[in-house]
């Protein structure tokens, strides 16, 4: 990790630590629980899209798969939710690993189509296997996570629970960026042929990072299931995959802090845009187009651009 990122990460963690003391039991704290979950999901997608340059439109469904496996294990089979969370993550990343081999042979639009297909298939499974998932009407009665006598059933506890995982995710992603594997991923993104000439097994690496992305998404899904205690397929559909894509693009491809910014804005946005109702996907689409046209490096890019400007002018 770069020195500036280390300092930024430390400062960010401290802010998160004290946030509940400032926000108390407010609605915004409640929203921050979801910002944490979405930060994990955005980073998971960023590993693929921002680091390795590979698109995935199936992220929402991998998130859903983690949520459903956790729900089924804990509510139907009485498995300890912590254990269930780990088992889900292993299963979901194994699925991604296996599916990844054929899918990640594809590039560009074809990869987008294939991951979209994966998302649709899983979405149909969530809807149709009513005995397991409860179908479209949802899956109620998922137990909360517990730690000793502490039950994660209120906003403050959930906030710390989710952000514990989100901060770890951020930390690991930041480490990865400036490392042998992070460079190999970015090399594949910039020129796959040159990366292969340098000895990077691009295909295997892409499959591995897809599996890692699925692992994180699954953890986020489990956290969602256990904090909300009710899940339904609608949360894991195509719309949400596009929302995640928008978060990553708004925040900036390859930027971990950008993913947080993107997640924060896109999680708060619906609260502000209630008036538009059902048109949210149109807003995301517009946002994607505008950012791609005018700010291809997202908010993170804008920040470093402004920093450079201030630096030059102060000279």
């Amino acid at each position: 990790m770069k020195k500036t990122d280390q300092i930024l990460f430390f400062a960010f963690s401290v802010c998160i630590l004290f946030l509940p003391l400032i926000l108390k039991e407010s609605y915004i704290l409640h929203v921050f629980v979801f910002i944490g979950i979405n930060t994990m999901l955005a980073i998971a997608l960023n590993l693929l899209l921002g680091y390795a340059g590979q698109i995935s439109l199936g992220q929402g469904a991998l998130y859903g798969l983690g949520a459903y496996i956790s729900a089924i294990l804990s509510a139907k089979y009485g498995v300890n939710p912590w254990l269930g969370m780990g088992v889900s993550a292993v299963i979901v990343s194994a699925v991604a690993f296996i599916v990844g081999f054929p899918i990640l042979k594809l590039r560009g639009h074809y990869l987008a189509m294939a991951t979209l297909g994966l998302g649709i298939i899983l979405y149909i499974i969530f809807n149709e296997t009513v005995d397991w998932t409860g179908g479209p009407s949802g899956f109620p009665g998922i137990p909360n996570l517990k730690l000793g006598s502490l039950t994660f059933d209120n906003d403050v506890a959930n906030f710390y629970l989710v952000w514990f995982f989100a901060l770890i995710t951020m930390f690991l992603a930041l480490n990865l960026y400036q490392s042998r594997i992070g460079r190999a991923l970015r090399a594949v993104s910039d020129s796959e042929v040159a990366a292969r000439i340098m000895g990077v097994d691009a295909w295997l690496l892409k499959v591995k990072i897809f599996a890692a992305s699925a692992f994180i998404s699954s953890l986020a899904g489990s956290l969602y299931a256990h904090t909300v205690t009710f899940i339904a397929p609608a949360s894991f559909g195509f719309n949400f995959s596009v929302e995640l894509l928008t978060m990553v693009v708004v925040g900036g491809l390859g930027s971990v802090f950008g993913s947080f910014l993107g997640a924060a804005i896109l999680t708060l946005l619906p609260e502000w845009l209630r008036v538009f109702h059902d048109f949210d996907i149109v807003i995301y689409g517009l946002l994607l187009i505008l950012i791609m046209m005018f700010m291809p490096r997202g908010l993170a890019g804008l920040v470093s651009h402004l920093k450079a400007k201030v630096y030059v002018e102060s000279k």
Partner: peptide, 26 residues
């Protein structure tokens, strides 16, 4: 590798001369 630094480009050249995996990097 256009968006990486010159130094990082050369560091990718050392990919086969090093062995850290995904986990130990993270």
């Amino acid at each position: 590798f256009g968006r990486m630094t010159v130094l990082e480009n050369v560091m990718v050249g050392l990919h086969t001369k090093s062995s850290s995996g995904l986990l130990s990097c993270a």
